[in-house]
Design a protein around this nucleic acid. Structure first.
Lengths: 189, 189, 189, 189
DNA sequence: TATGAATGAGCGTTCATTCAT
DNA sequence: GATGAATGAACGCTCATTCAT
C-alpha cells in the first residue's frame, strides 16, 4: 500500500502561505514542494500544474470565506458592530500574512492581465466580501450607498496592505479597521 | 557616431509600460528588448541588469513626480481644489496604465519582500505623494488629521486600481478621485 | 525507481577527461553534458554548478591518490625503486591524459588566481605527492634534501607535460621518470 | 586628422600582461581594451580578432627573445656562468609575471589542443630557449647531454612557476635558477 | 503514492565581432 | 582612428513538467 505523506488540504494550506509570501511567478514548484516536504515530482500526483494549484488555492480560500467568514454578517445574535469586527478579523487571518501579503491582492496584480483562469475566483472572492460588507452597512443607509461604503472599505484595506508592506508598519490596517467600523454609522449625504 | 535605434529615455519609457503590464518577474529581458526593437543582448549597452533597469525606471518615475507633479500643490495661482485635480490627473497618467496597472503598487507587492533595492525608491515615491496630499489637506484641518486623510486617499487609490483591474471597470478610480477632493472640506472630528 | 542514464561517478570520470582536454574555461556545461549523454539541464541534478563539479572532480582525484597511489610508498614488500615505479605509473594514469593534459597543472594555471575555491584541493594533491616522493627519497639522504629532490621531480614532471603537449612527443615524460628513479641514489652534497 | 591614442606596441605589451594574468579564455576583448584605454570596438582597428592578437603577442615575445635574450649566450665578453645568469633573468622578465604566470606555459596548456595556430610560435619560443641553453651547457659536455640538461632546466622552470603560483612562494624559482647554473658543471655520466 | 532522473524551453547575461558615423 | 550601438550565438543556470520505477 502506498504511503501518503500529505493531504491535498495540507498542500493547499502550505502553498497558500508560500504564494502569499513570494508571489505567483517568483514561486517555483520546488519552493512549494519543499514547503510541504515532498519532492517536485510527487507534487504532480496532487495537482497537474502550477496554474491548477493556484486556482485551487484560490478556490479553497473562496470556499472558506463563504462558509466560515461571510455568513457572520447574518448572525443575529450579535450586534452589527460585533459582526463587522469578527468578520474583518477572520478575513484578515485567512487572506493576509504577517509580512504584509494578501493572496488576493497579490494575485490580482500579478496575474489578472495574463491568466484569465484566476479571474473568476478572484472576482467571486471580492464580490462575496463586497456583499457581506454591503449587507452590514445597509442597516443604517440605502443599499446603493452601503455598496459604496463597502467598496471603499475594501479598497482602503488593499491599499493598507501595500503601505504596511512597504513601510513595515501595521497601523495602516488598524486605521482601516476602525474606519470600516465607524462607517456603520454613516448615512447618505 | 554609430546608428542609435533607441535612447535611454525611450527604453525607460517603454520598459515602464511593459513592467506595468506584465509585472517584474513575468517580464523577460526579451520582452523588454522587443518592446524597444532591440535584441536582448543589445539591451545591456544601456543597463547592466534587469534589476538596475527596474531601479532606474522607478527612479525616473520618482524624479518626474518630484519635478512635474508634486510641486503643483504649491501653485498659489490655483485654488486648492484645482491643484488637487491637476495633481491627481498627472499622477495617474504617470503611474497608472489603461489596463489597470500601477507600477508602484505592482512592484511593491511583487518585490519588496525579496528585493530590498527597490524599497527605497518606492518609499520615496509614496512619501512624496503622501506629503503632497497632506499639504493640500492641511489647509482646512490639522497637520495630523491631514496626514491621515492623505494616507486614506492613497490607500483607496491603490485598492481602486486592483478593483479596476479585476472587474475591468473604471468607476472605482472616479469614486476615489471624487472622495479625495471632497476630503478637502473635512475637519478634525 | 526512475531510469538513470548515468551515475555521479561516471559524470566525474567523464568530466575529468573533458576538463583535462579542454581546460576549465573552455569547457561548457553543454560539452560536459554531451560527454555523458545528458542535456545540460539534466546535469544540474547531479551538481549545483560548474564550479562545484570541478571542485568535486579535483576532490575525487585527491581521494583516489590518497587511497590508491600514495600509500604505495609504504609497501614494505617492495624495494624502494619498485615503489617509485608503481607510484609514478599509477599517478600518471590518474592525472595525465594521452593528449598531454594534466588536470592538476592545467587547473592551477587557469584558475588559481581567480578561483580560490580550487586552490585548497590542488594544494592538498601536490602536498600529498610531495610527501610521498619525499618519503621515498629520504631512504638514502636527509629529509631536507629529500624534499628538494621531491619538488624537483614534480616540477620536472609538470614541465614535461607541457613539452609533451607542445611537441607531441612522449620522451619528455620518460626522461623525467628515469631521473626520478635515479635520484633515489642521490645524497646530500 | 585622426588621433591615435595608442600604438600597436603598447597594445601588445598591455595585452601580454592581461593574458598572462587571466589566461586566454578568461580574458575578454573588453578586459584587453580597458587595459589599454580603448573601447572594445576600437581594438579591431589594430587586430582583427582575439586569436590574431594572441598570436601577435606571442610573436612579439618570440622576436624579443630572439633579438635581446637568446643572443646573450654568444657574448664572449662574459664567462659562461654570467651569460646563463643574464639570460635567465631577462627571460623571466619577459615571460613571467609576479603573480606566477608564464605566458608561454599558460598558453600551451590552455590552447595547444584546440588552437593549432598558436602552436608554431610557441614551439619556436621553446626551441629557441632550448637551443640557447644547449649552447651554454655544451661547453663542458656533449651536445646530446647538453640538450637533455637544457630540457631539464626548462621543464623545471615551468613546473616551478606552477608551484610558485599554487603556494605563493618564490623559492621554487630560485632553486631552479641555481640548479640551472650548477648544471653548467655537469658532465656525461 | 513517491521518487528523482530526464527533458526542453527559457532565463539573465556575456562575448567576439561588425559597422555607420 | 575612434566610437559605441547593435548583433547573434553561446554561456551557466532554472523551471514546469513527464514518467519509469
Amino acid at each position: 500500500m502506498p504511503i501518503q505523506k500529505v493531504t491535498r488540504e495540507e498542500i493547499l494550506t502550505k502553498s497558500l502561505e508560500v504564494f502569499r509570501h513570494r508571489g505567483y511567478h517568483n514561486t517555483s514548484m520546488n519552493d512549494l514542494a519543499n514547503a510541504v516536504g515532498l519532492l517536485k515530482g510527487s507534487f504532480y500526483h496532487y495537482f497537474d500544474s502550477k496554474e491548477t494549484l493556484m486556482k485551487e488555492v484560490l478556490m479553497s480560500v473562496n470556499i472558506f470565506l463563504k462558509q466560515e467568514v461571510f455568513p457572520i454578517v447574518h448572525d443575529t445574535t450579535l450586534p452589527i458592530e460585533a459582526r463587522m469586527e469578527t468578520m474583518l478579523k477572520r478575513f484578515s487571518k485567512t487572506v493576509f500574512s504577517k509580512d504584509g501579503g494578501c493572496i488576493v491582492g497579490n494575485t490580482i496584480l500579478e496575474t489578472v492581465n495574463q491568466y484569465p483562469q484566476f479571474k473568476e475566483v478572484l472576482q467571486e472572492i471580492l464580490t462575496g466580501w463586497t456583499n457581506a460588507l454591503t449587507y452590514l452597512y445597509s442597516h443604517r443607509t440605502t443599499p446603493e450607498y452601503a455598496r459604496k461604503l463597502a467598496e471603499q472599505s475594501i479598497m482602503e484595506y488593499e491599499g493598507a496592505i501595500m503601505m504596511a508592506k512597504l513601510f513595515g508598519e501595521s497601523y495602516y490596517y488598524k486605521d482601516c479597521y476602525l474606519r470600516a467600523i465607524e462607517r456603520l454609522n454613516e448615512r447618505t449625504q
